Computed example of a mutant assay.
Amino acid sequence: MTRSGETDALRATGVPLIDLRRWRSGDERTRAELAGELDRALCESGFLLLDGHGIGSEPREQVRAAARRFFALPATAKAAYATPVGGRGWLPPGQEANAFYGEQADPDRADLKESYTLGRNFSIGDPGQDALWFAPNVWPAEVPELAARCDEYADAVRRVYAELLEVCAVALGLAPDWFVRRAGRSPHTFNINRYPPRRETGTPRDGQFRIAPHTDWGMITILDRQVGYGGLQIQARDGSWLDAPHVDGCFTINIGDLMARWTGDRWRSTRHRVLPPPAESPGEELISLIMFLEADVDTLVAPLEPPVGPRQDYPPVRWGDYLLERAGAANVS
């Protein structure tokens, strides 16, 4: 969807477009207005589109071009870089089966995708924790340019993330650096997802998707996606599924379960899915760049007190423990 057609589609889904340039250059009143718009978006749909983030199309397309070279390698070559969910390297087709939290993933209907998954280049100085959360990335020798392009992109997205955390804090009436101070030593997961065409996957099984209905796990997801017949859908409050809006150059932003829990369900961690490869376009192949951004893994999450957090019955949970539980549930072994 181009900007000329954005208004009706954005209104239909309840997903607004927010321009981060208003935060960067605005006075206190403008910033408060922007934070209010973000608050309403995360209360109502859990999603928003982000413009003005400052990351141009070139670094995103450079990552895609390098990733395509890797995905085009024979499976025998890619197997040298294979990893389970939560690791570093190649997640082969059939390796991951997403599901809504509390529901059982079906390994016989594994997600119709393959991924290259990366983490943050960082160290907290604890060998055990570094090995678990900041393991070295694995780079394919066949595509030497992938490392630099991914590192450049991930660093740029983390800068946007820090700004979004400031907006989130102001939206909740907290000090602007409240979340930033709890995320400086955080890991992230950077997934490059390839959604193969139907002529490669064959006809999906009943109830099988490119990514099955699920919620994200952590703080904030920053997604750069391509649109197609088999694209992203968001579940509305009434249970219906709506095509997620797309505006050229804008990121799709949503929050995860732990951020929703932190706000006492003031903000929604919304179920979403990626449709199966379509019969209407059997050659459709899409590549998404997905950054799952987190808080520090030792952060203890308990609902913020009223009036911020309407729900107070969630027991405290350690950030890293929750992530490990969810990764284990999604892994097809």
Rank of each mutant, 00 (worst) to 15 (best):
A105P: 15
T83W: 03
A135W: 00
N121L: 14
N98A: 12
K113P: 05
P144I: 03
A82I: 03
E114G: 06
S115C: 15
W133F: 11
N137Q: 04
C150Q: 11
A154I: 13
W139I: 00
G128D: 14
A141F: 12
N98K: 09
L118E: 05
P127N: 11
G119Q: 08
Q104R: 15
G125Y: 10
E114C: 04
P144Q: 05
A148Q: 14
N137I: 10
Q129C: 02
R109M: 01
A147R: 15
D126I: 03
S123Y: 10
D130H: 09
Y116V: 03
G87F: 09
P93S: 10
D126H: 09
L112F: 01
A131F: 05
P92S: 12
A148S: 14
D151A: 13
A99R: 13
R109D: 02
P127S: 11
N137E: 09
K113N: 12
A131K: 08
G128M: 06
A147H: 14
G86R: 02
W139E: 05
G128E: 15
Y153P: 03
Y116Q: 06
E96P: 05
W133R: 03
T117H: 05
D111W: 07
A97T: 07
A148W: 07
E103D: 14
P140M: 04
L118M: 15
R120C: 04
F134Y: 06
R109N: 08
G86N: 10
L112N: 08
P107D: 13
G94K: 02
A110Q: 02
G119N: 10
G102Y: 09
T117V: 14
A99Y: 04
E152W: 01
G119R: 04
N98I: 02
I124E: 02
D106N: 14
A80Y: 06
N121A: 10
F100Y: 11
P93R: 11
I124M: 06
F122L: 12
A141P: 13
Y153D: 03
Q129T: 08
N98E: 01
S123E: 13
V143F: 11
W90Y: 15
T117L: 08
